[in-house]
């Protein structure tokens, strides 16, 4: 069907672009094992020294813990608020519901820098000290529209009949939401949750501007960069990559796989 020339061309392009995509990651991981003080060629041999330095670095480790706490907590709050709003707006005819939908999804259209700056001005004015809490507030702001949009989009009419059946059988509104709607929508709720966690985990600018002493991992890595090229930065970078890929595999196996047979 396709000529040999086009097969060769496609194959070459495919390999070249994958090479481009993986080049920086490969270099990052390779030189995290560098037996030397600089993560640049020539490669001197394998050592795990930099990884043990990463684990011995209390600032990095507390930043890691901070990142996980902020990501998980802010994502749970965003998901909860998003789910409740999506449930109410798709199941009831509330006055001004179109406007409410626009309002909730509005932060999605604004860059993180502007959200961070706005919160910074507000917190300054109110005299609220910057901490992990203020970072968490910012992360809920960016993830709430995402969670709402994902969950709202999956609330279809076919679930309405099941909910009505549950109501006929005597369940109250709260029971319907908790025992019928939430389990039926679990794949999209989990997708929203994990996506929020990865966004919050990776977020830099809000964390940078809204934190002071306790920082998240991207901010701590950022301050490591001031010391220039360093195999230790490679090591923490590789670990972050590993963690993110792990999260992605969980997402793929437990969340998206379940939806694909439909």
């Amino acid at each position: 069907m396709y000529s040999r020339l086009s097969n060769v061309l496609c194959g070459t392009y495919f390999i070249a672009i994958y090479g481009f995509i993986f080049l920086p990651v490969a270099v990052l991981v390779l030189y995290s094992f560098q037996d030397g003080t600089l993560p640049i060629p020539p490669f001197n041999g394998v050592t795990f020294k930099w990884y043990s330095e990463v684990f011995a670095d209390s600032k990095l480790m507390s930043a890691l813990a901070n990142s996980i706490i902020v990501a998980v907590l802010s994502s749970i709050i965003a998901c909860l608020l998003g789910f409740c709003a999506a449930y109410a707006l798709s199941r009831y005819r509330l006055p001004g519901s179109a406007f409410q939908r626009i309002l909730i999804t509005a932060p999605m259209t604004v860059s993180y820098l502007i959200i961070a700056l706005g919160l910074l001005v507000l917190f300054n004015w109110m005299g609220i000290r910057l901490s992990l809490w203020t970072v968490g507030v910012g992360h809920v702001v960016i993830n709430l529209p995402l969670c709402f949009a994902i969950i709202y989009a999956s609330m279809g009419d076919h679930q309405k009949n099941i909910e009505r059946a549950a109501r006929d059988l005597g369940a109250n509104n709260f029971q319907v939401m908790l025992l019928i709607t939430a389990p039926m929508l679990m794949p999209s709720i989990l997708a929203a949750l994990f996506l929020s966690i990865t966004f919050s985990w990776d977020e830099f600018i809000i964390s940078f501007l809204l934190s002071r002493f306790d920082v998240t991992l991207p901010v701590e890595i950022w301050s490591l960069l001031r010391s220039g090229l360093n195999p230790k930065t490679n090591a923490i970078g590789s670990l972050v990559f590993l963690l993110s890929v792990g999260l992605l595999i969980i997402l793929e196996l437990f969340v998206f796989r379940q939806r694909s047979p439909k």
Binding site: I21, F22, P24, V25, L28, T198, W201, D202, F204, L217, P218, I221, W222, L225, I236, G237, V240, F241, S244, V245, L247, L248
Partner: peptide, 10 residues
């Protein structure tokens, strides 16, 4: 896949 590395690290 490298999309999921941290932005700063990338």
């Amino acid at each position: 896949l490298p999309f999921w590395t941290s932005y700063v690290v990338r």
